[in-house]
């Protein structure tokens, strides 16, 4: 790649172009000031107390739950592709010798210079971080946090172990475990749509909270199916909470949202830890086979 591309007269033209873009975009953003429409959001907010106390969780994992399924897929695919770049799953055509695959080498570690105190405190910190990740996960429906945050915190614990102890990471996650947990996580999320699909025909209908067929909200026409009680209890009751709010007390349940969060957490743990693992330790198919 030659860096001459943006020098000289081309550079000046580019700067002018950037200025035009900047002026155009910023003037239009200024126009937006005071003109923002509320649109659909008041409706969402009205429904929120019947579901998760954490309004954000019900937005992200219920109303827009299918969006988040694909968004989670971005992380999964990101891991798949990053690991592919390192060498997992490079394919060759039978009988055709193309160029040899580009083989990256793993990182060299030098952990001997590390402070003794850091080494001593490494394991407790990792354990506490993992516990914190699980706390964030369990609080998904009631407080800030959720599956994605849990995964990120967990993987930071894993990265910490890598930095402190090199190849002897106390949090010893094997490649197979990570790939499996990532895949299982995404499929838990995907399959949690199934109960709603089978009973009401709507994918990812929240059978636990069951806002629309249980008569919590009056005046809905067109929904033919009613969620059977057993499903409602199975997915709803373990997460039923009493919300004492200024305008009354609501018995609300987040239904499948906390379960989705567990799937999401697994997925993120698998994906991000796998990226860390492969970028630091490298990937070697032969080594994997001998395990």
């Amino acid at each position: 790649m030659d860096s001459k591309g943006l020098k000289g007269s081309r550079g000046i033209i580019a700067v002018i172009a950037l200025m035009i873009i900047f002026v155009g975009v910023s003037t239009s953003l200024l126009q937006l000031n005071g003109n923002v429409a509320r649109g659909i959001s008041p409706e969402y907010n009205e429904l929120a107390p019947y579901e998760a106390p954490n309004n954000l969780a019900s937005w992200v994992y219920d109303y827009r739950g299918f969006d988040t399924l694909i968004e989670t897929g971005v992380i999964y695919v990101g891991a798949l592709v990053s690991v592919l770049a390192i060498g997992r799953g490079i394919v060759r055509v039978k009988g055709v010798e193309g160029d040899a695959p580009v083989a990256p080498s793993s990182m060299e570690f030098n952990v001997s210079t590390l402070n003794v105190i850091l080494k001593y405190f490494g394991v407790p910190v990792i354990i506490l971080l993992v516990a914190y990740a699980l706390l964030v996960l369990t609080g998904a429906a009631t407080s800030g946090g959720g599956g994605f945050q849990c995964g990120v915190i967990f993987s930071s614990a894993y990265l910490l172990g890598m930095i402190f102890y090199g190849r002897k990471n106390p949090l010893n996650l094997s490649k197979k475990f990570l790939i499996a947990i990532g895949g299982v996580g995404w499929s838990i999320y995907a399959l949690l749509g199934l109960p709603g699909y089978l009973t009401t025909g709507y994918w990812q209908y929240n059978v636990g909270a069951d806002l629309w067929t249980s008569g919590v909200i009056p005046g809905v026409d067109g929904m033919a199916a009613v969620v059977p009680d057993i499903l409602r209890q199975l997915f709803g009751d373990p997460f039923r909470l009493l919300l004492v709010m200024s305008d009354g007390t609501y018995a609300s349940t987040a239904g499948i949202v906390p379960l989705i969060n567990i799937g999401e957490a697994f997925n993120v743990i698998g994906a991000i830890c796998l990226i860390f693992l492969v970028f630091v330790y490298g990937w070697n198919d032969e080594e994997e086979k001998s395990r």
């Binding site: 790649m1 591309g5 580019a14 172009a17 035009i20 873009i21 155009g24 975009v25």
Partner: peptide
């Protein structure tokens, strides 16, 4: 397919569209 060149043309395009 040099990145700088493509980036240059994208900027020109975008500026023209906006303008």
């Amino acid at each position: 397919s040099d990145l700088n060149r493509v980036l240059f043309w994208v900027m020109i395009y975008f500026a023209v569209i906006i303008a």
